[in-house]
Design a protein around this nucleic acid. Structure first.
Length: 340
DNA sequence: ATTCTAACA
DNA sequence: TGTTAGGA
């Protein structure tokens, strides 16, 4: 068939199809003399997947990467497509959170305008400043640590650091015993990595979900624990709707956040938690902001660590009872339960 | 009547 | 990607 018929069949314009060819997404045969494009069933099938991926919001270049460069489809492409769709999904959640933020800012400004006669310039400007700070905090969260690259050896390294392995295992064990998941409860593990903590809670009978920035880590996790639902995403824009989980846990993830980012992450945890939901965190923590700053200066390459006082204060102000245990060195476990 | 390339919006 | 021009 020629381009018009193919376009009609796929709901595309002929121009769009030529454009896809120009971008290297398809390579239809051309008639010798006329240079007219000729589309066979394979071409149509490929165009169908392109249309589908476009509808999912993938850009032309993403589709280019997701689809095997060869002219025709082959079997092993599903994984690549899934990988790009997950990345896309994660971006969309971030954009969604951004939008939500912006709506709140607009609401705040409207509220100001409703009560004042003149333009409340100062107040609006301050609100805008705060909003901008939050946005910049979010966007400054990058994969500084290259966890995709570390995924393959992650579990080995955890097991090898024998001195700290005991502490690592002890911390995870304490989370599991403090959370004491009832069968069927829904839990979320933030920064789940290869799923070690989530796996333990899974065995306890909980229905677990895991979020991690690194898809490579999650692929390990899926291989180890197929029952865990995993999503790519970051802690500042958790890819779940509000009020979904009975408990949220996190181990060795918050240490990578700055103080401002930590506050956003905590907000996000409370958002996805049910009203009576509980939180348990194992991480490197310092006794106070001063110590944390000193450490940050001493180790310029590292992010500031979470401050214990900040953490517990944050929860207590919101009506939680906080329990803390020091495991080893800076490693602490913090448990927060709403006051009944 | 269709399709093609190229350039511009 | 849509549009338009100029050709085959």
């Amino acid at each position: 068939m020629r381009i018009k018929e193919a376009a009609a069949r796929l709901g595309l314009s002929p121009r769009a199809i030529r454009f896809y060819e120009e971008k290297g997404l398809i390579a239809p045969a051309k008639e010798r003399s006329s240079q007219y494009r000729t589309f066979d069933e394979d071409d149509v099938r490929r165009l169908q997947t392109i249309v589908a991926l476009r509808e999912a919001g993938l850009g032309i270049d993403d589709i280019q990467k997701a689809l095997p460069a060869g002219g025709k489809d082959d079997g092993g492409a599903a994984g690549e497509v899934a990988r790009h769709l997950e990345l896309r999904r994660s971006e969309m959640v971030s954009a969604w959170v951004e939008l939500k933020r912006m709506i709140e800012t607009v609401d705040g400004m409207l509220a100001m305008l409703a009560s004042e006669q003149a333009l409340p310039t100062d107040a609006m400007f301050r609100l805008a400043q705060e909003a901008r700070d939050v946005r910049e905090l979010r966007s400054s969260w990058q994969d500084v640590w290259d966890y995709d690259g570390l995924a393959e050896t992650h579990d080995d390294r955890v097991a090898e650091s024998s001195g700290e392995y005991t502490a690592y295992a002890e911390a995870l064990g304490l989370i599991v015993s403090w959370i004491a998941a009832a069968p069927g409860e829904e839990g979320l593990d933030l920064g789940t990595g290869t799923g070690n903590l989530a796996g333990m809670l899974l065995r306890q009978g909980a229905k677990m979900a895991g979020v991690d920035q690194s898809l490579a880590m999650l692929q390990r996790c899926r291989a180890k624990f197929p029952e865990i639902e995993t999503k790519v995403g970051n802690l500042l824009a958790i890819p779940y709707t509000a009020g979904k989980f009975d408990f949220v846990v996190s181990s060795f993830a918050l240490q990578h956040l700055s103080a401002g980012q930590l506050r956003l992450a905590l907000e996000e945890m409370l958002r996805v938690l049910k009203p009576r939901g509980r939180i348990c965190i194992a991480d490197l923590m310092t006794s106070g902001d001063r110590v944390r700053e000193q450490l940050a200066e001493a180790f310029p390459g590292h992010k500031p660590l979470a401050a214990l006082a900040e953490l517990s204060g944050y929860f207590e102000r919101r009506g939680y009872v906080v329990k803390i245990r020091r495991i080893h060195g800076l490693l602490h476990v913090v448990y927060a339960v709403p006051i009944r």
